[in-house]
Amino acid sequence: MSFDHALRLTEALLALALVQQSLEHLRAFRHERFLFGVRIVLCLLVLVGVASPWPLVALAGLSLLILQRFQGPYNGGSDRLGLLALWCVTLARVLPVEQWRELAFGYLGVQLMLSYFISGWVKIVNPDWRRGVALRQVFAFSAYPVAESLRGWAGRPRLLVAMSWAVMLFELAFPLTMISQPSLIVGLVVAATFHLVNACLFGLNRFFWTWLAAYPAILWLQQRLF
């Protein structure tokens, strides 16, 4: 995958992810509707490739206003990765030197890889995750499950232990998928499936679209390095 192709694909996927997030705010207060309405328009300009890179620059500037409005990335990890991706692709478009543009885009790929590894490390050093207790609490007590019937999984400790270890080991091993393009593609398919399952079970749909948008960056980075 060429640099230009990967960058363009990341822009398009990120624009779609930001549109999906922005639609949630169109029923909010008037000031929020204005901010996110403008963001939708800018995302559509990015999608059709009009006046590049200025819609991206405007989106990056608008992200600062949204950060100020909510006193930070209000929706956790998905917002943080979305902001990182937005600024990385913007810099990859506007920086004057090709090597700088590649560094900005490659940084997104590195951060995507680390997002899985660090998540796995944080889990595996936590005894509650190793014993399946953390997942049991998610199913039993949190507001995340999209159906009450899913709360019954809290009473299946062996399944929860197996699920916990499967997630932890995959996340810790994810950097090894960078060894080759086929292994990385397999790793990304597994990761995307993981995010899709979380979206279906827990309603965490923002994570699916935001992480998916960053996949072209790591695919390009793997080719660039190996």
Rank of each mutant, 00 (worst) to 15 (best):
A6Q: 05
L7D: 08
L7W: 04
R8H: 10
R8S: 14
L14F: 04
A17T: 01
L18N: 02
Q21W: 08
S22D: 03
L23W: 08
L23S: 11
L23H: 07
E24M: 03
E24A: 08
H25V: 02
L26T: 00
R27L: 14
R27G: 13
A28C: 04
F29I: 00
R30F: 13
R30S: 12
R30T: 01
H31N: 09
E32D: 12
R33Y: 02
F34A: 09
F34D: 14
G37V: 02
G37E: 13
V38H: 11
R39L: 12
R39S: 11
I40L: 14
C43V: 02
L44K: 11
L47W: 10
V48G: 07
V50Y: 09
A51E: 06
V57Y: 01
A58G: 02
L59Q: 09
L59Y: 10
A60L: 06
G61S: 06
S63W: 01
L65V: 06
I66D: 06
I66R: 04
L67F: 13
R69P: 04
Q71W: 05
S78N: 13
S78M: 05
L81P: 00
L81V: 11
L83D: 02
L83V: 03
C88H: 09
T90K: 08
A92C: 13
A92E: 11
R93L: 09
R93G: 05
P96Q: 13
P96C: 07
Q99W: 15
W100D: 01
W100S: 02
R101S: 03
A104C: 03
F105T: 02
G106R: 09
Y107Q: 11
L108D: 01
V110Y: 14
Q111N: 12
L114K: 13
L114P: 02
S115D: 08
Y116D: 03
F117W: 10
G120I: 00
G120A: 14
G120D: 10
W121L: 12
W129M: 04
R130M: 07
R130T: 01
G132F: 05
A134Y: 10
A134F: 06
A134S: 14
R136A: 06
V138W: 07
A140L: 15
F141H: 13
S142P: 04
P145E: 12
V146R: 15
A147D: 06
E148W: 15
S149Q: 15
R151I: 01
A154G: 15
G155I: 00
R156F: 14
R158N: 13
R158M: 10
V161L: 11
V167H: 04
M168L: 02
L169Y: 03
F170M: 07
L172Q: 10
L172I: 11
F174M: 11
L176A: 12
T177R: 13
T177P: 07
M178W: 14
M178E: 02
M178G: 14
M178A: 12
I179Q: 11
I179L: 14
S180C: 06
L184W: 15
V186M: 03
G187M: 09
V189M: 11
V190R: 12
V190S: 01
A191I: 06
A192M: 13
A192P: 00
A192W: 10
V197N: 11
N198H: 03
N198A: 09
A199G: 01
A199N: 04
A199Q: 05
G203R: 15
L204V: 01
F207N: 09
F207K: 03
F208T: 06
A213T: 04
A213M: 07
Y215L: 09
W220A: 07
L221I: 10
Q222M: 14
Q222Y: 03
R224V: 00
R224Y: 15
